[in-house]
């Protein structure tokens, strides 16, 4: 039996052939190494992220999360829910808290769930994978398994918004969270403590609807990584990763820059540091190749 076991909510972007499938593949590798077993919530649905509010009122949106919680309670009664996607975690945790504060809303959600014979009790803890790493496993334990330290790799730790606010990680500040930097140092890399854009918004879903406004922010996030001498930006969030990586061509065309900054996940850093190859660490999923990290992975 695995040392740690959770009811897992992967989310839409983590599916095969989706924009965050590289997150999922590296999370799988990382969990293998850390003896973590993720049991996918059977038939989970979308949480409607933080952009569904135009189409869905508050009760329908909260009910989407209620269904996932109900399925988790049914299939994994003794396991906490863990998510890797910032928006999935936030939406589910937010729903869990609102139902707790508002029993009448919870009764209404259960009334809706009854349409498909479901019911939830709302007794689940909703956690982020980063919390599993820090609280259940711990830096020391993670550090002790490093086989290939990320020597000389300068990492701009880009925490972003929704992994950090409004819930964040216990004991960390909203304005200057240090856990990603600590994790990088634990893996033998060099965290950049002066990376001032670490909690700057990338536009989130508005990168689609307001590309000009969002790309102005993304430009700043990448520029600061260069100014701070980063080899790579690392993030826990699939939307941050995509937004900051995939528009660099468009930003270069608009701003006359020559950005070519790789953006990777913490799970890829851990996979490489634990001795896994580039493919297991999903480095083939990069649009902008993380060459320095590939080199370490090929050692």
């Amino acid at each position: 039996m695995a040392k740690h076991e959770y009811s897992y909510y992967p989310g839409c972007s983590s599916q095969k052939g989706a924009s965050g499938s590289n997150l999922q593949r590296s999370v799988d590798t990382m969990c293998e190494e850390l003896d973590v077993k993720l049991n996918q919530i059977p038939d989970w649905n979308c949480c409607s992220a933080s952009i569904g509010y135009g189409g869905g009122g508050v009760l329908p949106r909260m009910t989407l999360s209620a269904r996932n919680i109900a399925l988790s309670e049914q299939h994994h009664p003794d396991q906490e829910i863990v998510a890797t996607c910032a928006a999935c975690w936030l939406a589910t945790k937010e729903a869990q808290e609102r139902f707790e504060d508002d029993p009448s809303m919870m009764a209404e959600a259960n009334q809706a769930l009854a349409e498909a014979g479901l019911e939830f009790k709302n007794k689940k803890k909703i956690r982020h994978m980063v919390e599993v790493l820090i609280e259940d496993i711990g830096y020391d334990q993670i550090g002790s398994g490093v086989k290939r330290p990320l020597e000389g790799l300068k990492v701009a730790g880009y925490v972003g918004c929704q992994t950090n606010r409004p819930f964040g990680i216990d004991g960390e500040s909203f304005e200057n969270p240090m856990y990603l930097d600590k994790l990088v140092d634990t893996l033998g890399g060099e965290s950049i403590k002066t990376y001032e854009k670490k909690v700057q918004c990338c536009g989130g879903a508005l990168a689609f609807s307001e590309p000009v406004k969002s790309q102005e922010m993304i430009h700043g996030i990448i520029e600061s990584a260069y100014d701070n001498g980063a080899d790579v930006i690392a993030t826990p969030c699939p939307l941050c990763q995509a937004n900051v990586e995939i528009y660099q061509d468009e930003i270069n065309a608009k701003y006359g820059t020559k950005f070519d900054m790789p953006v990777v996940y913490y799970s890829q850093l851990i996979s490489v540091a634990y001795g896994r190859d580039a493919k297991d660490s999903s480095l083939d999923g990069q649009i902008i190749k993380a060459k320095k990290l590939e080199k370490i992975a090929g050692k």
Binding site: S13, S19, C46, I51, G52, G54, A205, S209
Partner: peptide, 20 residues
């Protein structure tokens, strides 16, 4: 964004997951 949020909702509701 008003337009996109509705499109996102409709897209997601069709099969229960987002079709990117």
């Amino acid at each position: 964004t008003a337009w996109f949020s509705q499109v996102f909702w409709d897209n997601m509701m069709k099969k229960g997951r987002v079709n990117e």
